[in-house]
Simulated assay, not measured.
Amino acid sequence: MSNSFGKIFKITTYGESHGVGIGVVIDGCPAGVRVDEAFLQSEMQRRKPGQSKITTQRKEEDEVEILSGIFEGVTTGTPIALGIRNTNQKSKDYSHIKDSYRPSHADYTYQEKYGIRDYRGGGRSSARETAARVAAGAIAKMYLKQAGINVQAYVSQVGSLKLEKSYLEMDLDKAEENIVRCPDPEMAEKMIQHIDETRKNRDTIGGIVSCVVKGTPVGLGEPVFDKLHAVLGQAMLSINAVKGFEYGSGFEGVKMYGSEHNDPFETEEGKVKTTSNHSGGVQGGISNGQDIYFNVAFKPIATIMNDQESIDKDGNKVTVKGKGRHDPCVVPRAVPIVEAMAALTIADFMLRAKTNKI
Protein backbone atom coordinates (compact mmCIF):
# COMPACT_ATOMS: atom_id res chain seq x y z
CA MET A 1 0.00 0.00 0.00
CA SER A 2 0.98 3.63 -0.55
CA ASN A 3 3.82 2.93 -2.95
CA SER A 4 2.31 5.32 -5.50
CA PHE A 5 2.26 9.11 -5.80
CA GLY A 6 0.23 11.38 -8.09
CA LYS A 7 -3.24 11.16 -9.62
CA ILE A 8 -2.67 11.65 -13.36
CA PHE A 9 1.11 11.76 -13.67
CA LYS A 10 1.40 8.80 -11.33
CA ILE A 11 4.48 6.91 -10.19
CA THR A 12 4.82 3.57 -8.37
CA THR A 13 8.23 2.64 -7.00
CA TYR A 14 9.43 -0.86 -6.16
CA GLY A 15 12.43 -2.70 -4.72
CA GLU A 16 14.60 -2.82 -1.61
CA SER A 17 17.99 -1.46 -0.65
CA HIS A 18 19.73 -4.85 -0.79
CA GLY A 19 17.49 -6.65 -3.25
CA VAL A 20 18.23 -7.30 -6.93
CA GLY A 21 17.25 -3.78 -7.87
CA ILE A 22 14.83 -0.90 -7.55
CA GLY A 23 12.71 0.94 -10.07
CA VAL A 24 9.63 2.92 -10.96
CA VAL A 25 6.61 2.72 -13.24
CA ILE A 26 5.29 6.06 -14.51
CA ASP A 27 1.69 6.05 -15.71
CA GLY A 28 -0.02 9.05 -17.26
CA CYS A 29 2.98 10.77 -18.83
CA PRO A 30 1.70 12.32 -22.07
CA ALA A 31 2.96 11.08 -25.42
CA GLY A 32 5.45 13.22 -27.30
CA VAL A 33 7.78 14.20 -24.47
CA ARG A 34 11.33 14.08 -25.81
CA VAL A 35 13.52 12.05 -23.48
CA ASP A 36 17.16 13.01 -23.05
CA GLU A 37 18.81 9.86 -21.68
CA ALA A 38 22.03 11.74 -20.90
CA PHE A 39 20.06 14.17 -18.72
CA LEU A 40 18.27 11.25 -17.04
CA GLN A 41 21.59 9.66 -16.16
CA SER A 42 23.09 12.98 -15.01
CA GLU A 43 20.24 13.35 -12.52
CA MET A 44 21.06 9.90 -11.15
CA GLN A 45 24.72 10.91 -10.78
CA ARG A 46 23.68 13.84 -8.58
CA ARG A 47 21.93 11.49 -6.13
CA LYS A 48 24.15 8.41 -6.31
CA PRO A 49 26.28 7.34 -3.32
CA GLY A 50 30.06 7.57 -3.20
CA GLN A 51 30.32 10.92 -4.99
CA SER A 52 32.50 12.74 -2.44
CA LYS A 53 34.18 12.54 0.96
CA ILE A 54 31.04 13.87 2.68
CA THR A 55 28.72 11.14 1.36
CA THR A 56 28.38 7.40 1.93
CA GLN A 57 31.12 5.38 0.25
CA ARG A 58 28.73 2.78 -1.15
CA LYS A 59 29.54 2.58 -4.87
CA GLU A 60 26.50 2.44 -7.15
CA GLU A 61 26.54 3.74 -10.71
CA ASP A 62 22.73 3.83 -10.68
CA GLU A 63 22.47 3.24 -14.40
CA VAL A 64 18.85 3.45 -15.51
CA GLU A 65 17.47 0.85 -17.89
CA ILE A 66 14.43 2.01 -19.87
CA LEU A 67 12.12 -1.00 -20.12
CA SER A 68 9.02 0.46 -21.74
CA GLY A 69 7.06 3.58 -22.70
CA ILE A 70 9.76 5.32 -24.76
CA PHE A 71 10.33 4.79 -28.48
CA GLU A 72 12.95 6.53 -30.59
CA GLY A 73 13.61 8.97 -27.76
CA VAL A 74 9.99 10.05 -27.27
CA THR A 75 7.33 8.99 -24.74
CA THR A 76 4.52 6.95 -26.28
CA GLY A 77 1.81 7.68 -23.70
CA THR A 78 2.01 4.12 -22.33
CA PRO A 79 3.47 3.20 -18.92
CA ILE A 80 7.16 4.02 -18.61
CA ALA A 81 9.18 1.43 -16.66
CA LEU A 82 12.64 2.35 -15.40
CA GLY A 83 14.89 -0.20 -13.68
CA ILE A 84 18.06 0.30 -11.59
CA ARG A 85 20.20 -2.67 -10.55
CA ASN A 86 21.81 -2.85 -7.11
CA THR A 87 25.47 -3.74 -7.64
CA ASN A 88 27.36 -2.88 -4.46
CA GLN A 89 25.20 -4.01 -1.56
CA LYS A 90 27.01 -5.53 1.45
CA SER A 91 24.24 -7.28 3.35
CA LYS A 92 26.66 -8.83 5.85
CA ASP A 93 27.21 -5.33 7.25
CA TYR A 94 23.72 -5.61 8.77
CA SER A 95 23.76 -9.15 10.19
CA HIS A 96 24.65 -7.77 13.63
CA ILE A 97 21.32 -5.90 13.88
CA LYS A 98 19.12 -8.73 12.56
CA ASP A 99 17.24 -8.95 15.87
CA SER A 100 18.01 -5.49 17.28
CA TYR A 101 16.10 -2.21 17.01
CA ARG A 102 18.36 0.63 15.92
CA PRO A 103 17.54 3.98 17.60
CA SER A 104 15.33 6.26 15.44
CA HIS A 105 15.12 3.73 12.58
CA ALA A 106 12.05 1.98 11.19
CA ASP A 107 13.13 -1.43 12.56
CA TYR A 108 10.61 -1.58 15.40
CA THR A 109 7.68 -0.02 13.55
CA TYR A 110 8.09 -2.25 10.48
CA GLN A 111 8.38 -5.36 12.68
CA GLU A 112 5.23 -4.45 14.60
CA LYS A 113 3.24 -3.49 11.50
CA TYR A 114 4.17 -6.40 9.23
CA GLY A 115 5.52 -9.09 11.58
CA ILE A 116 8.63 -9.24 9.39
CA ARG A 117 11.29 -6.80 8.26
CA ASP A 118 14.17 -6.70 5.83
CA TYR A 119 17.06 -5.74 8.11
CA ARG A 120 19.53 -5.39 5.20
CA GLY A 121 19.92 -1.63 5.06
CA GLY A 122 16.31 -1.09 6.08
CA GLY A 123 14.84 -2.77 3.01
CA ARG A 124 11.93 -0.74 1.69
CA SER A 125 12.42 1.99 4.32
CA SER A 126 15.93 2.71 3.01
CA ALA A 127 16.65 6.01 1.29
CA ARG A 128 17.93 3.91 -1.62
CA GLU A 129 14.28 3.88 -2.78
CA THR A 130 14.62 7.57 -3.63
CA ALA A 131 16.82 6.72 -6.63
CA ALA A 132 13.63 5.55 -8.34
CA ARG A 133 11.98 8.88 -7.55
CA VAL A 134 14.88 10.81 -9.06
CA ALA A 135 14.58 8.74 -12.25
CA ALA A 136 10.86 9.50 -12.48
CA GLY A 137 11.49 13.13 -11.56
CA ALA A 138 13.87 13.46 -14.51
CA ILE A 139 11.03 12.48 -16.85
CA ALA A 140 8.75 14.99 -15.10
CA LYS A 141 11.39 17.71 -15.52
CA MET A 142 11.54 17.01 -19.27
CA TYR A 143 7.76 17.37 -19.47
CA LEU A 144 7.85 20.63 -17.48
CA LYS A 145 10.69 22.02 -19.57
CA GLN A 146 8.39 21.99 -22.59
CA ALA A 147 6.05 24.26 -20.60
CA GLY A 148 8.86 26.61 -19.54
CA ILE A 149 8.87 25.46 -15.91
CA ASN A 150 12.16 25.04 -14.02
CA VAL A 151 12.75 23.36 -10.66
CA GLN A 152 15.98 24.11 -8.78
CA ALA A 153 17.04 23.21 -5.24
CA TYR A 154 20.12 23.88 -3.14
CA VAL A 155 21.49 23.40 0.37
CA SER A 156 20.75 26.45 2.52
CA GLN A 157 21.66 25.12 5.96
CA VAL A 158 23.88 22.49 7.60
CA GLY A 159 23.55 22.28 11.36
CA SER A 160 23.70 25.89 12.61
CA LEU A 161 25.43 27.15 9.44
CA LYS A 162 22.66 28.99 7.61
CA LEU A 163 22.53 31.05 4.43
CA GLU A 164 20.90 34.37 5.25
CA LYS A 165 20.60 35.44 1.60
CA SER A 166 17.39 35.13 -0.43
CA TYR A 167 17.52 32.88 -3.47
CA LEU A 168 16.99 36.06 -5.51
CA GLU A 169 20.41 37.31 -4.39
CA MET A 170 22.33 34.25 -5.59
CA ASP A 171 23.19 32.38 -8.77
CA LEU A 172 21.66 29.01 -7.98
CA ASP A 173 23.63 27.35 -10.79
CA LYS A 174 26.72 27.70 -8.59
CA ALA A 175 25.24 25.08 -6.24
CA GLU A 176 26.48 22.35 -8.57
CA GLU A 177 30.03 23.68 -8.43
CA ASN A 178 30.77 22.25 -4.96
CA ILE A 179 30.15 18.92 -3.21
CA VAL A 180 27.71 20.29 -0.63
CA ARG A 181 25.51 21.98 -3.31
CA CYS A 182 25.37 25.41 -1.68
CA PRO A 183 25.32 28.36 -4.13
CA ASP A 184 27.42 30.57 -1.84
CA PRO A 185 31.08 29.44 -2.21
CA GLU A 186 32.22 30.85 1.13
CA MET A 187 29.39 29.22 3.08
CA ALA A 188 29.85 26.01 1.08
CA GLU A 189 33.41 25.64 2.37
CA LYS A 190 32.23 26.09 5.95
CA MET A 191 29.51 23.50 5.45
CA ILE A 192 31.90 20.99 3.91
CA GLN A 193 34.32 21.41 6.80
CA HIS A 194 31.51 20.99 9.35
CA ILE A 195 30.24 17.80 7.70
CA ASP A 196 33.75 16.36 7.42
CA GLU A 197 34.45 17.08 11.09
CA THR A 198 31.16 15.43 11.99
CA ARG A 199 32.13 12.36 9.93
CA LYS A 200 35.50 12.12 11.68
CA ASN A 201 33.65 12.23 15.02
CA ARG A 202 31.62 9.22 13.82
CA ASP A 203 28.42 11.27 14.06
CA THR A 204 25.84 12.86 11.75
CA ILE A 205 24.31 16.32 11.21
CA GLY A 206 21.08 17.61 9.67
CA GLY A 207 20.29 20.49 7.35
CA ILE A 208 17.83 22.25 5.05
CA VAL A 209 17.29 22.00 1.31
CA SER A 210 15.56 25.01 -0.29
CA CYS A 211 13.75 24.75 -3.60
CA VAL A 212 12.44 27.25 -6.17
CA VAL A 213 9.95 26.52 -8.96
CA LYS A 214 9.88 29.16 -11.69
CA GLY A 215 7.47 29.53 -14.60
CA THR A 216 4.38 27.89 -13.12
CA PRO A 217 1.12 29.17 -14.62
CA VAL A 218 -1.73 30.56 -12.56
CA GLY A 219 -4.30 27.99 -11.48
CA LEU A 220 -2.42 24.90 -10.28
CA GLY A 221 -4.01 23.40 -7.17
CA GLU A 222 -7.25 21.69 -6.23
CA PRO A 223 -9.14 23.08 -3.24
CA VAL A 224 -10.01 22.00 -0.64
CA PHE A 225 -7.86 19.01 0.35
CA ASP A 226 -5.48 18.93 -2.61
CA LYS A 227 -4.18 22.47 -2.27
CA LEU A 228 -0.91 22.84 -4.15
CA HIS A 229 1.16 23.55 -1.06
CA ALA A 230 -0.51 20.68 0.83
CA VAL A 231 0.49 18.14 -1.82
CA LEU A 232 3.98 19.65 -2.06
CA GLY A 233 4.22 19.20 1.71
CA GLN A 234 3.12 15.57 1.42
CA ALA A 235 5.66 15.00 -1.35
CA MET A 236 8.51 16.42 0.71
CA LEU A 237 7.51 14.76 3.98
CA SER A 238 7.47 11.39 2.20
CA ILE A 239 11.24 11.68 1.68
CA ASN A 240 13.37 9.76 4.18
CA ALA A 241 14.68 11.81 7.14
CA VAL A 242 12.48 14.85 6.44
CA LYS A 243 11.20 16.50 9.60
CA GLY A 244 9.73 19.76 8.37
CA PHE A 245 8.28 21.67 5.41
CA GLU A 246 7.54 25.37 5.05
CA TYR A 247 6.67 27.45 2.00
CA GLY A 248 6.75 31.17 1.38
CA SER A 249 7.42 33.13 4.56
CA GLY A 250 6.91 29.90 6.53
CA PHE A 251 7.40 30.05 10.27
CA GLU A 252 9.17 33.41 10.01
CA GLY A 253 5.88 34.88 8.79
CA VAL A 254 4.40 34.73 12.28
CA LYS A 255 6.68 37.61 13.28
CA MET A 256 5.06 39.94 10.71
CA TYR A 257 1.90 42.03 10.78
CA GLY A 258 -0.70 41.45 8.10
CA SER A 259 0.09 44.87 6.68
CA GLU A 260 3.67 43.68 6.14
CA HIS A 261 2.88 40.15 5.02
CA ASN A 262 0.20 40.85 2.41
CA ASP A 263 1.31 40.66 -1.24
CA PRO A 264 -0.25 43.61 -3.16
CA PHE A 265 -1.26 43.09 -6.79
CA GLU A 266 -0.16 45.18 -9.75
CA THR A 267 -0.01 44.86 -13.52
CA GLU A 268 3.22 44.81 -15.49
CA GLU A 269 3.12 44.72 -19.29
CA GLY A 270 -0.48 43.64 -19.11
CA LYS A 271 0.16 40.78 -16.70
CA VAL A 272 -1.01 40.52 -13.09
CA LYS A 273 1.76 40.02 -10.53
CA THR A 274 2.44 40.75 -6.88
CA THR A 275 4.92 43.33 -5.57
CA SER A 276 6.15 40.90 -2.89
CA ASN A 277 5.91 37.13 -2.54
CA HIS A 278 5.47 36.17 1.09
CA SER A 279 2.78 33.75 -0.15
CA GLY A 280 5.44 31.64 -1.88
CA GLY A 281 3.56 31.63 -5.16
CA VAL A 282 0.45 29.98 -3.70
CA GLN A 283 -2.76 31.67 -2.54
CA GLY A 284 -5.86 29.78 -1.51
CA GLY A 285 -4.03 26.58 -2.38
CA ILE A 286 -3.70 27.67 -6.03
CA SER A 287 -0.58 28.92 -7.82
CA ASN A 288 -0.66 32.65 -8.62
CA GLY A 289 2.10 32.64 -11.25
CA GLN A 290 4.88 33.89 -8.97
CA ASP A 291 7.90 31.82 -7.93
CA ILE A 292 7.04 28.90 -5.66
CA TYR A 293 9.68 28.51 -2.99
CA PHE A 294 9.94 26.31 0.08
CA ASN A 295 12.31 24.75 2.64
CA VAL A 296 12.68 21.09 3.58
CA ALA A 297 14.31 20.16 6.91
CA PHE A 298 16.28 16.92 7.19
CA LYS A 299 17.20 15.36 10.53
CA PRO A 300 20.67 13.97 11.31
CA ILE A 301 20.86 10.47 9.79
CA ALA A 302 19.97 7.91 12.46
CA THR A 303 22.83 5.52 11.63
CA ILE A 304 25.95 6.71 13.42
CA MET A 305 29.33 5.01 13.74
CA ASN A 306 29.34 5.28 17.55
CA ASP A 307 27.84 2.47 19.62
CA GLN A 308 24.30 3.02 20.91
CA GLU A 309 22.23 1.31 23.59
CA SER A 310 18.93 -0.27 22.56
CA ILE A 311 16.91 -3.50 22.87
CA ASP A 312 16.36 -6.57 20.71
CA LYS A 313 13.04 -8.07 19.59
CA ASP A 314 12.75 -9.97 22.89
CA GLY A 315 13.23 -6.83 24.97
CA ASN A 316 16.78 -7.60 26.03
CA LYS A 317 19.25 -4.73 26.30
CA VAL A 318 21.82 -4.68 23.49
CA THR A 319 24.59 -2.47 22.16
CA VAL A 320 24.08 -1.51 18.53
CA LYS A 321 27.49 -1.33 16.87
CA GLY A 322 28.17 1.43 14.36
CA LYS A 323 28.96 -0.34 11.08
CA GLY A 324 28.35 0.05 7.35
CA ARG A 325 28.58 2.90 4.82
CA HIS A 326 26.38 5.89 5.56
CA ASP A 327 26.09 9.63 4.92
CA PRO A 328 27.31 11.94 7.71
CA CYS A 329 24.83 14.50 6.28
CA VAL A 330 22.07 13.68 3.84
CA VAL A 331 21.36 17.14 2.38
CA PRO A 332 23.95 17.22 -0.46
CA ARG A 333 22.43 14.08 -2.01
CA ALA A 334 18.88 15.13 -1.07
CA VAL A 335 18.92 18.14 -3.45
CA PRO A 336 17.96 16.11 -6.56
CA ILE A 337 15.39 14.16 -4.53
CA VAL A 338 13.63 17.36 -3.45
CA GLU A 339 13.71 18.58 -7.06
CA ALA A 340 12.28 15.26 -8.28
CA MET A 341 9.33 15.29 -5.87
CA ALA A 342 8.61 18.93 -6.68
CA ALA A 343 8.71 18.21 -10.43
CA LEU A 344 6.42 15.19 -10.03
CA THR A 345 3.94 17.28 -8.03
CA ILE A 346 3.87 20.17 -10.51
CA ALA A 347 3.65 17.81 -13.51
CA ASP A 348 0.64 16.09 -11.96
CA PHE A 349 -1.10 19.40 -11.29
CA MET A 350 -0.34 20.61 -14.81
CA LEU A 351 -2.23 17.60 -16.17
CA ARG A 352 -5.01 18.01 -13.62
CA ALA A 353 -5.44 21.64 -14.71
CA LYS A 354 -6.14 20.47 -18.25
CA THR A 355 -9.06 18.37 -17.02
CA ASN A 356 -10.64 21.38 -15.28
CA LYS A 357 -11.35 23.25 -18.50
CA ILE A 358 -13.91 22.61 -21.22
Rank of each mutant, 00 (worst) to 15 (best):
G258F: 05
N201H: 09
T78A: 13
G248F: 01
L67T: 14
F245Q: 04
T319R: 07
K243C: 07
Q89M: 13
S249E: 07
A347D: 04
P183I: 07
L144Q: 02
R181I: 05
E269P: 09
S125T: 13
T303E: 07
T76M: 05
V74A: 03
E112T: 15
A147H: 08
S210M: 03
E222L: 12
Y108R: 09
K145V: 14
M256C: 07
K92T: 15
A106M: 06
V330Y: 07
P79S: 06
Y247E: 08
K243R: 11
F251W: 09
E65I: 14
G69Y: 02
T75A: 08
N316S: 11
K113A: 08
V330A: 09
A241M: 13
G19Y: 10
V318T: 02
D118V: 01
M305P: 00
G258M: 10
G19Q: 06
A241F: 04
K92N: 15
Y101H: 11
K59M: 10
S259H: 01
S2F: 13
V338I: 14
S160P: 15
K243M: 09
D93Y: 04
F251L: 09
K323N: 13
A138T: 12
T204A: 05
P103G: 08
I286T: 08
G253C: 11
G289Y: 04
R34K: 15
T13R: 09
G123R: 03
Q152K: 11
S52Q: 06
G137S: 07
T204W: 00
M305G: 00
R117W: 09
T275L: 13
N295L: 15
S279A: 15
G148L: 03
G219T: 06
D173W: 08
A132H: 00
E60M: 00
I346L: 05
A241Y: 06
D171T: 03
Y257S: 10
I66Y: 05
C182E: 00
I84Y: 08
D348H: 12
D99Y: 05
R128F: 04
F265G: 15
V64R: 03
G32Q: 07
N288H: 07
R128V: 02
I54P: 01
I80M: 06
K357F: 14
M191C: 00
D327C: 06
H96T: 11
H96F: 06
R47F: 07
Q234A: 13
G115F: 03
E43S: 13
V134L: 04
S166H: 14
Q193M: 15
G270M: 03
F251T: 10
A188Y: 11
K354E: 15
V74L: 08
M1K: 12
V296G: 07
R102V: 13
T198I: 09
N316P: 12
G21Q: 02
R47K: 11
F294M: 02
L232H: 08
K214D: 14
K162H: 13
L161D: 01
V24Y: 03
S287T: 05
Y257M: 15
V242I: 15
